[in-house]
Design a binder for these strands. Sequence first.
DNA 1: AGAATAGTGTCTATGAGACAGTATATG
DNA 2: CATATACTGTCTCATAGACACTATTCT
Lengths: 380, 380
Amino acid sequence: MTRPSVSLIGSFRRHYAEVLEAAQLFTDAGMVVKSPPMSRIINHGHEFVRFECDPPMSSDHAIQAATMEKIFSSDVVYVVNPDGYIGRTTAYELGRVHERGLAVFYAEPPKDLPIDIPEGTVVDARSLAKIIGGEGAPPDPVRRPRVAALPTADIVIFTIRFNRLHVLLVKRGTDPYRGRLAIPGGFVRPGESLEDTARRELREETGLNDAGIRLQQLRTYSHPQRDPRGRIISTVFLAITPDLPEVAGASDAHRADWVEVEESLWGHNSSLAFDHGEILQNGLEHVRRLLEHTTIGVDFCGELFAISDLRKVYEAVWGFELNSGNFQRKVRKTTGFVVKTNKVRSSRPGAPAELFRRGTAGILYPPMMRPRQRGRTGTP
Amino acid sequence: MTRPSVSLIGSFRRHYAEVLEAAQLFTDAGMVVKSPPMSRIINHGHEFVRFECDPPMSSDHAIQAATMEKIFSSDVVYVVNPDGYIGRTTAYELGRVHERGLAVFYAEPPKDLPIDIPEGTVVDARSLAKIIGGEGAPPDPVRRPRVAALPTADIVIFTIRFNRLHVLLVKRGTDPYRGRLAIPGGFVRPGESLEDTARRELREETGLNDAGIRLQQLRTYSHPQRDPRGRIISTVFLAITPDLPEVAGASDAHRADWVEVEESLWGHNSSLAFDHGEILQNGLEHVRRLLEHTTIGVDFCGELFAISDLRKVYEAVWGFELNSGNFQRKVRKTTGFVVKTNKVRSSRPGAPAELFRRGTAGILYPPMMRPRQRGRTGTP
DNA sequence: AGAATAGTGTCTATGAGACAGTATATG
DNA sequence: CATATACTGTCTCATAGACACTATTCT
C-alpha cells in the first residue's frame, strides 16, 4: 500500500503561509506532498513564483510543465484559496486537473470562476488530512477520481521479404527515445475511432491506398508509466501486406523501414522505444497463432500466388520447414482457402506452378497446426 | 469532407468587438464557428458573460459546461486577446483545452501565463482563416489535434448456472440508460493500468476476493459516439467464474445479477445499455473459441470437478450436445488438461464419478474442435 | 426394478506426417 | 546433362466420431 499523495495549488504569492501550514498537516497525516517543493521562494512579489530548487535558467513554462507532472502524479489536489481568490495560473492548472479528472478539494468556494464545486469538496486542510490519511473511507471525489488519457493507435505491420518476416518500424525523430526504432502509430484525432486512426496511420506510414489491407486489434497497453510524456494508452493493431517494394520510405517526415523481426527482437542494438519490444513480441506470437486457424496467410501474398509462396509464408512466420507435398494437399483440400486460376508461373527452374487467388473462407477448418515438438519436421 | 470548425475564447467582456470580427472572418472562409453563439450579450459589465440564447435560469457553471462541449467539438481554438490579456475563465478554458490536446492559436502572445506558445501559433484571424479554410496544408498544430478520452475497463463475467451460460450484468442507476442492463465496469483511476481497474471492478462487482479469477483482454471499443457523456473508450476484459451462489447482489450500490446469455442477447426486453449488446456478442463468440484451443473451460468448474461437469460447460457455451464417451477419452488423453485426484462423487444416480483438478496446460493440443456442421452430434 | 450416470471398448473415416516418385522447367 | 521445383501417390499412425456395452448408483 503506497501512501496517498496530494498537491497544493493556489496563489503562492498571496498565500504561501497557508500553503506551508496545509503541507505540514498533510505530511503529519502520513501523506506525500508532491507539489509545491518545500523550498524557499526566491522571487518575492512576482506573480509566477520561483523556488530555490527550480533550475534557474529555465523558462516559466518549463517549470510549470514540471509542476503539472507532479500534480498529475498525485491522488488529490488541494486548492489553497483562503479568501476564495483564484489567480490565472491556478485557473489554468484547475482546467488541466479537471480535464484529467483528478479529485479536487478547495479551502473556500472559488470566486468568479464558473466551475462546478461538488458537495463536500470545500473542506479545511485539517479535516481533509484526517479523512484521507485516516482510516475512514474517503469521500466520493477521492474514491472515484478518473483519469483522462491520450489514446493512440499503433500498428504492427508485417510483411515477408527475402523469405523472412519483416516488420515496419520508424526511427523516432523527437524525444523521448529520439533515434530509437518504434512501431508506427499516432494519436486519435477528434471524431476518429481507434480503427479510423489506425487506418489513417497505415496510409500515412506506408503510403498505401486503403486497398485490401485489413486491420485487426491485438491488445491495449495501458501501464501508467509506459510513456514518459504522460498518460498514453495505446491500442495495437495488426496489419499484413504483401512484399511491396515501393512502400518503405514513402511515408512522411519520419522514415519508415522494414526490419527483420528476429533482428529487431533479439539482435544487438535492437531495443525498441517505449514498450514496443513487448508489443512486437506479442504481435509475433499472435500472427503465428492466426496462421493456424485463419486464412490470414494469404494476406502476405499478392493477388496471384503459388502454393509454394504460401508455404514460404508459413515457414517464415513459424520458423519451421514444412513438407512441401503435405502442405500442397492440405491447402488444396481445405475448402475456401485458395481458389485455382487457369494461370501458371514458370519463371524459375522446376515445374510450372499453378497460380491461386485467395478463397472466401476466413477460418481454417480443420486448422493448420504448427508442429509443437521441435526436431520433428512435417506438415503444419 | 466536413467543414473545419473553430471556437473563439477570450475575455468577451473586454474584446467582444474583436471576437465578432474574427468570427465573421472565419465564417466567410467557410468555417463553422462553434462558440461563442453569435447572440446578444445581456449582462454587460460582468466578468462572466451571458448571452441571450443561454437558458436564463441555469448557473454559470452549467453554461460554462455547455460551452466547453462546443469548444471540444471544434477542430481549432482561437484565443482573442488583442492586448495579450487572458482572464481567469479563459485561463481555465485554456487548461482544459491544452489537456485535451486541441490545436490552439493566439491573437497575441499571452501575458503572465506560464504556458508554452509553439512557433507559428500567434497569428491574426485573417491569416488563420486563410490557412485553415484555404487549400494549403494547415500548419502543424492544426494537422495534429489530439483528443483525450476517459478510459474504462469493462468486464464480461461468465458463469454457468443450471447448465446454462450466464453473464453478470448491472442495472444502471443513473443516466444515460438509467434502468437498463449493462456490463459492469468503471473508469481508470490515477496510477491504475486497465488491468488494475478491471481487477478492482471485478472485486467490487462480484464481492469476490482476487483468488484465482483470471482476466484477459478482449477488445477496445472506441466509437466516438458510443457514450453520450463524451469520449469514453472502453477496454473489455473476460472473466470466468465457477457457479458461486453468494455472488450476485454482493456488490455495492448498483445491483449486479446473473442473466442468461441467450435471454439477454435475443430475449424481448433485452437491449443493453450503450454498445454492450455488441460487446456481449463478441465476448460470447470469443469464449466459444477459447474453449476450442485453451483449457479455460476448467475455470467454470470449482476446484474439484467431474469430467461430466466439464462436458456440461462445453455444452452450455457451445449450445451443442456432446458425446459423453468421446469427451471422456479426449479430456483424459490430452496431457495437462485435468489431473486425477483420488476422490469420487456419488451423490446422484449413476456410477460414481472420479473427481479432477485443473491441469497445468493452458493450451489444448490438439484442439477440441466444436462441430461445424449442424445436425451432427459427436465429440468436439 | 428402472432410470440415470460414468466410463470402456470397438469400428470406421479422416487427416497428419513421412517419403518416394514423376513431370517439367532453367541453366 | 544436372538441378531445382511442383505436384501426386502411398503407407502408417493418431484421432474424431459413432455407438454398443458394462458398472454403479439413486429413487
